[in-house]
Amino acid sequence: MLTLPAYHAPDFSREPLASAPDARLAAVERDGVAPEGFHSTSMYPEYVRVGGRWLLARRSRMDASVVVAPGPAGELELRVVENRNLRCGDLVVLGRSEDGSEGVYVHAHGFDDPGAPEGADKFAFRQGRSRETAFASDYDRLYDLLRHEREHGRVVWVMGPAFAFDADARHAMQLMVEGGYVDGVMAGNALATHDLEAATLHTALGQDIYTQRAQPGGHYNHLDVINRVRRAGSIEAFVREEGIEDGIVASCVRRGVPMVLAGSIRDDGPLPDVIGDAYEAQGAMRAMLEGATTVICLATMLHTIATGNMTPSYAVTDDGTVRPVYFYAVDVSEFVVNKLRDRGSLSAVPIIANVQDFITIVARGLGLA
Rank of each mutant, 00 (worst) to 15 (best):
T203P: 12
D224R: 13
V330N: 09
D195T: 10
E77P: 01
A232H: 13
G320M: 07
S42P: 01
L17S: 05
V322S: 13
G291F: 02
I226W: 00
P312N: 07
R59L: 05
V50W: 05
R240E: 14
R364G: 11
G110Q: 03
A167K: 12
T211Q: 05
S13T: 15
D112C: 11
T311D: 09
I209K: 03
G179P: 11
G217H: 11
P72N: 06
A124N: 06
G247E: 10
A192S: 10
G74P: 12
E151V: 09
P70D: 09
G153I: 00
T294M: 06
I351M: 15
V274I: 13
A348V: 09
V322I: 15
L205N: 13
R59S: 07
N221R: 03
V48N: 02
Y314D: 02
L366C: 11
V48K: 02
L146M: 15
A18P: 04
A329M: 03
A192L: 15
R170T: 03
S101K: 09
E77G: 07
N85A: 13
Y47N: 00
L340G: 01
N338T: 15
A363T: 02
L196Q: 06
F12K: 08
D267Y: 01
H152R: 15
V349K: 15
E290S: 01
T3S: 13
M173S: 02
N83Y: 01
A120Q: 12
A23W: 07
T294N: 01
V67R: 15
P114V: 06
M259D: 03
K122S: 10
Y210N: 01
P10G: 10
T193A: 14
V67L: 06
D99A: 14
